[in-house]
Design a protein around this nucleic acid. Structure first.
Lengths: 239, 239
DNA sequence: CCAAAAAGTTAGTCTAAACTAACTTTTGGC
DNA sequence: GCCAAAAGTTAGTTTAGACTAACTTTTTGG
């Protein structure tokens, strides 16, 4: 049986296509690195039909990037996770670079990075990172995986869960919606901002916080995306 | 006949795919902007089979980007030329940026730009250009089209055509081969270098030039890619 | 000026990645 | 513990862009 098509269990280093990188990133995000991801949720994140996901997921499992059990969702294999983290590093280094070196506002870095992450070489990513001083978080406070694939997995509480009287530093904004980011920017809520919870209206009502000497009121949906590090602990460095 | 497939004569602004941008760039390069391009030559530049080019060229003509006459090659239409120049601007701005802002050596900017040019937004290109001071040539001396699509079309003589005794400045190196660029770099031959032709061996033999107080000998094939501006006229600015 | 070479085209396949429609499996509420 | 809803899958199409093989048109050199 010479030159068979070679079952391809762990094919050797063919570069991943753009859609494949997007799937892996989505699965990583859903499972927080290790958990399982449901077909429908992948489909929703990528704005695809569930049937398309079933198809792709099978191919990725054949390539050894996913562990797949029909009707029960997928998990990343080690090799899949490595690939996902590589893309995530690219994405976040690019975001940080756009922001620090090219003056991009934080609400516009995501979309640009989304396209560039597939085209940039490892050399470019490394040069960008070096040029801005090896950043460890992106402009939204998300941790940048190292070249070796290590990520800070610290989990923060959201502003929505903070008790009255608590003071903390904004560690991260867990959403990329430009409208939301622009609004938070106007309120001076961004990584590094110190704030104190003054009041919480009942029935899931608005949360009142002080930022500097300003007092502002934030809806719970928004607050859920603002991740807070306890005041003394101080979150990972940004600039 | 409601909702017909719409002959699509001049379809409205769907963004061009990566292969389409590559075809237009190749056709522009072959025809120097306005001349005709032969199917085989396009195929060779893009490393594709001629049959693939026939197919694509027909689609591009349908979209109004090319004027195509079967068996007689293609020309860019105005809209095709505009698209080609837009891609060319992106490519060269990226090259210049990689070189000046990120310390890329000139032999490695081309390949990186080749991929990034399809992914970068207009905003990114403009920010890059602004950050390095609106460059007008790339690291090889090639002119960067303006945002409006104007290009400097000055034609230079190659070093291979220069008479003995002539002095000039290197305006441009008309090749992207990394090996060649690295070799020229070692000889200090790059845009801006002043040199003087001292001798030319007969029968297409090597050309002897002085660069600074060094004397070097260059084969005619290489010399043909080194484009020279007459000493006094001085070529377009590089850094 | 005409025949062989060169250039170009058509026809038919292939692949990745999407889709819709129809079917199957799992889950969760009573 | 059953059955409807939710979740997931299969089957069959579609699209862009590539390919090879076979054919046609143009060019060129004797």
């Amino acid at each position: 049986m010479p030159r068979s098509k070679a079952k391809a269990a762990v094919k050797k280093r063919e570069p991943l296509t753009e859609p494949v990188e997007d799937y892996l990133k989505a699965i990583y995000a859903i499972g927080k690195g290790s958990g399982p991801a449901a077909t429908n949720e992948i489909a929703q994140r990528l704005a695809l039909a569930p049937a398309s996901v079933s198809g792709m997921v099978r191919r990725l499992a054949d390539q050894g990037l996913l562990a797949y059990e029909r009707y029960h969702g997928v998990k990343l294999t080690d090799s899949g996770r490595r690939a996902a983290l590589r893309t995530l590093r690219r994405h976040r280094v690019i975001e940080a670079y756009l922001s620090r070196a090219l003056g991009y506002p934080w609400d516009r870095v995501h979309d640009e990075a989304e396209r560039l992450e597939h085209a940039a070489s490892d050399e470019l990513i490394d040069r960008m990172a070096a040029t801005i001083g090896e950043p460890i978080v992106d402009p939204h406070g998300a941790p940048i995986p190292t070249r070796e694939g290590a990520v800070d997995e610290t989990e923060y509480k959201s502003l929505a869960e903070l008790p009255i009287g608590a003071t903390g530093l904004v560690a991260r904004v867990a959403d990329e919606d430009p409208e939301m980011l622009r609004y938070l920017g106007e309120l001076s809520i961004r990584p590094g901002t110190r704030l104190t919870v003054k009041a919480r209206a009942p029935f899931d009502g608005p949360i009142t916080v002080t930022v500097g000497r300003q007092q502002i009121s934030i809806g719970p949906a928004l607050a859920a995306h603002v991740m807070i590090a306890p005041a003394r602990a101080r979150p990972r460095g940004y600039r």
